[in-house]
Write a protein that binds this DNA or RNA. Structure first.
Lengths: 151, 151
DNA sequence: TATTGTTATACTCTATAACTATA
DNA sequence: TATAGTTATAGAGTATAACAATA
């Protein structure tokens, strides 16, 4: 019992299809109601957790590259949702943080996001949610580490 | 214990990040070596399983919309990997099936895909793999059904 | 009139590369 | 020379809308 390929049971396919379905449903809400795209939403969430961070550390925290961070930050700054302050330790960098408007927006979005998540996982027990989270972290780590990178 | 939003524990985020990491690693292989994109790869796999199918049934089987099916099929037909035959029951439709070249390509790709999957899930027990598959199916179903569709 | 499939168009996410400015 | 960040450009996946052909 090993080596028959069935798309329905192929886990990369299952992951992609599930992620796409979830992203469509969840991101639709904050895109339409708040005009936020996923990278922007991630930045706001991390900044609500960490108060102030450089683009580089935001990249680490959100698994997005510097281009995505740069674009998302520019969009949020233009809307007055985050602010950039000088980084005294490094003139090339800067500190990003939520403005008052950004905090107010976050206060509106966060409950909605949690409610949407709760609805999606309504049939899951706490154990099942934790199991899914753990398994996803393990697959992610394997995907990032295996194969030794691009050849 | 409920309502604090932490990006790291937000399951839509975990799903997206894991799926992206896995897709990058897996799809890179058959894109670079075989010149296949994901929708094309899915079509080939399904056709290897089902022998012959209309675009509509391929859409159902691969969770892709008719545009993606149409484009992927056109690319594969141009490369001589699949063939289109008339559908006697409906002149608007047609039957798609693998050519000999398509079958030969599939015979090359399938073991590689299975090996890549095996490497990604090397640390997983069979139970863990099955659990992940089941949980992903349940989330996907919830995402497709919840909320009653776009508003 | 409704449905199958194609084409045009556009949006989102991501990635590669070239560039600016600091270190 | 190397690094932090920006900008230009492009590729991949997906979606909406208009269209052609057939039912």
């Amino acid at each position: 019992m090993t080596t028959t390929l069935t798309l329905e049971k192929f886990l990369p396919y299952r992951l992609s299809v599930a992620s796409n379905a979830v992203s469509s449903r969840i991101s639709g809400a904050y895109r339409k109601r708040f005009g936020l795209r996923i990278p922007e939403w991630r930045l706001i969430t991390i900044l609500a957790e960490t108060a102030s961070a450089t683009p580089a550390s935001l990249g680490d925290a959100t698994r997005m590259d510097k281009i995505a961070i740069s674009r998302a930050a520019a969009a949020l700054i233009e809307r007055g949702l985050i602010a950039a302050d000088d980084n005294p330790a490094d003139g090339r960098s800067h500190f990003l943080s939520l403005t008052e408007d950004g905090r107010a927006l976050y206060a509106d979005i966060a409950p909605m996001a949690l409610a949407a998540e709760a609805e999606l996982f309504a049939s899951f027990t706490v154990d099942e949610r934790n199991t899914l989270e753990t398994l996803l972290r393990r697959v992610e780590a394997a995907a990032l580490n295996s194969g030794g990178g691009p050849d």
